[in-house]
Structures are given as structure tokens and as C-alpha cells.
Design a binder for these strands. Sequence first.
DNA 1: CTCCGAGTAGAACGGTCTGTCCAGTATGAT
DNA 2: ATCATACTGGACAGACCGTTCTACTCGGAG
Lengths: 194, 194
Amino acid sequence: MSVTSSRTSAARARLLDTASRIFYADGIRHVGVDRIIAEAGVTRVTFYRHFPSKEDLVLAYIEQRDQQIRAAATQAFRASTDPEELLLMLMAGFGEEICRPGFRGCPFINAAAEYSDPDHPVRLAVRTHRSWFRQTVKNLVTAAGCRDSEHTTAALVLLRDGAMTGGDLDNPEAVQVQLMHAAHTIITDRRNPQ
Amino acid sequence: MSVTSSRTSAARARLLDTASRIFYADGIRHVGVDRIIAEAGVTRVTFYRHFPSKEDLVLAYIEQRDQQIRAAATQAFRASTDPEELLLMLMAGFGEEICRPGFRGCPFINAAAEYSDPDHPVRLAVRTHRSWFRQTVKNLVTAAGCRDSEHTTAALVLLRDGAMTGGDLDNPEAVQVQLMHAAHTIITDRRNPQ
DNA sequence: CTCCGAGTAGAACGGTCTGTCCAGTATGAT
DNA sequence: ATCATACTGGACAGACCGTTCTACTCGGAG
């Protein structure tokens, strides 16, 4: 229990959830630990008991997002066995996400903007997530029998990143429509005749 | 002279150029004015004479980038009178930019990631730039006689943002190829038959 | 009962941040 | 010669940064 408690403690969970909300909404480097511990309702000692430094909290935030998205994908992939439908569902998920109130762009892209050093652990975690996402898309594209799977995958990733950016900086509803139209065009155009 | 000197001083120019380089490479909020004045080779008093606060320097950085890009576009647009060719040149310019050493993504997207408040002057400057860019693309798309100019413009903006992101986080050369392929497809597919 | 892990409360550390102030220097126009 | 202007140098305040510290409470396991 004492070993796992550092990962399952209620205080730790509150800390991480609070940090996740604040980091996503307001950025990372500019937010002090004072604000996080205050809003999480814990003390400094408790914070540093669970996270040796602020950087560990930041990493935990990024990795939690990664895990949540992977879990959501695994869950969503149970809804259908048709890879083409799943691809469209995936892109539709992004389309809905960017329209939700409080959307502030892709947390990984935003984090990378704040950590410019390519060797920084945050950057590494972002690359790990993006590699997983790209591979996931590629698996679906391949399973859907698209020609030129590498090319199609890259186009969908490009589209996704552009939509996450435009959803924050431009008109989310317009971007959503554009995203779905483009995704549909890409996927169906590359479909192999059967 | 005394009136214009605050805008044309050599010290001010060095300050702004240094800040531009550092802000783009390393981010904005995390770098202090100490580093900027040190690398620019001026004193703190000189800095605060030209920029009442750090925020004014940040704004000047964003607006300088905006002006430089507009000037480059105006310059480039003299190379041809064919709007379709100009559109492809525009996208090719982004393709080359993301492959250049030191590329760190779109300075406006990165700045917006660090300033989450939609009403912050930095966000406003970013919106201003993006509005100009979108309108510029739309003018070219319209002049090129594309069907559904609004839709085509949105697709190209989406593509551009995705490429700027992927150029920083993924493989720039691969993104460049993908960008040009997609741009070519979008533009020629929407061409009205003549 | 005793002990220990996990929590609370709050002070304090050294460092860095933006921004201000004082004193002195070089230059160039009048 | 004078005088405003733009600069240099360094010290300084006040706030905030991440981090560590002491001292205390409480509940459950041995």
C-alpha cells in the first residue's frame, strides 16, 4: 500500500487534476506551484511528497493526457469494426473537441511551444504521443485498404493539427465543417476499388 | 529627429532583433529582459526608454513578424500575375520555411500558446495577422477562379497550420512533400473548367 | 500502545523576475 | 560653449519563483 499510495492518493489525484486543468487553460511555465497547491487544497509538503519537482508534475500532466486519449481511442474502437468508419469517427471526435467550450488547442502542441529544447522530457513525451497517434491512424488507413497509406496518414495528421490550431485561433464551427469535409475527401478518394 | 529616434535608434533595432531571435527560438514568457539586454548589448535603462514594458517588446516582436511577412508576400507577388501560380508559390514558401535550420513552428501560433487570454494584445495581434493571411489567400483563390472560394481558402489555411506544426514536431522534409502534394490537389481540383 | 505514513500549517531559503533610480559620459545641434 | 539626447554602469525594491524546513495532527497497522 505504501508503495502504490504515491500513485493513488486522493491528494495526488486532486493535484494532478488541478494542474491538468490549469496547465491546459493557462499554460505551463507561467503558472506557479503556489496556485496549483492552493486550488488543489493541499500543502506544499504534500505536493513535494508526490512530485519531486514541478517538472515531474508537468510530465505527469502530459502523460496523463496521453493515457486518457489512448484509453478513449481504445474505448471508441469498440464501436465499430469498419476501419474507414473508425477513421471518420476519429476525425469527427476532433471536430467535436474543438467546438467544446474551453477548448484551447492541442495540449501537446501547446506544451511543445513552451519547451523549445528538442531533448527536453516534455518534448520527448509529445513525440511519443504523436508517434502513437500516427501509428494508430496508419493502422486504420492500412486496414481500410487505402492506397498509399503513408501518404494518406500524413494528410490526416496534417489536417488534425491544422484543425486543433484553427479551433483555438479561428472559428471552431467553421473549422469543424472544413475538417470533416477534407477528411471525408481524403479517405474516400484513396479507397481502393474492390 | 528626437521624435523618430525612438523608432529608428540603433539600440532599439538591436533590442528588437535580439528579442525576435530569442523569443522565436526559446519562447516568450520564460525569457527575462536581462538576457535580452545582455545579448543586445544595451543597458536596462536604454531598454525601458524604448519599450515601456516587456509586453511592449513582445508586441513589437509579433508586429514586426507580421510586417516582415506582409512585405515578403508583397515582394513575392511581383514574381507572377497568375494567381494559381502565386498560391502554389505561397505554399512552397511554407514548405521551404519548415525545412530551414532553426525552424521552430509558426511564431504566431507559438505566441498564442503562451498567451491564453483571448483578449490579450498578443492574441489580438495574432488574430490580425491570421485575418490578413486568410484574406490574402482568399483573394488569390478567387482570382484563380476556384469554385467555393471560402471552402478552398479554409482548406489551405488548415494545411498551412498543420504543416507549420508538423515541421517543428515531426519530420520537416516529409511534411514539406505532403504539404505540396495536398496543396496542389486542392488548388487544381477546385479549378473551374474554362 | 506504539509507530509510522500521510496529511496540515506556515515560515523561510536563495534565486530570478520586472521595473525604477541615481550618477556619469559621449555626441551633435544650436 | 551650452544643452538636450541617448547611452553606460550598477544598485535597488518588491514580487514571485521553486524548494526545503520545522512542528503538529490523525488514523490505521503491527
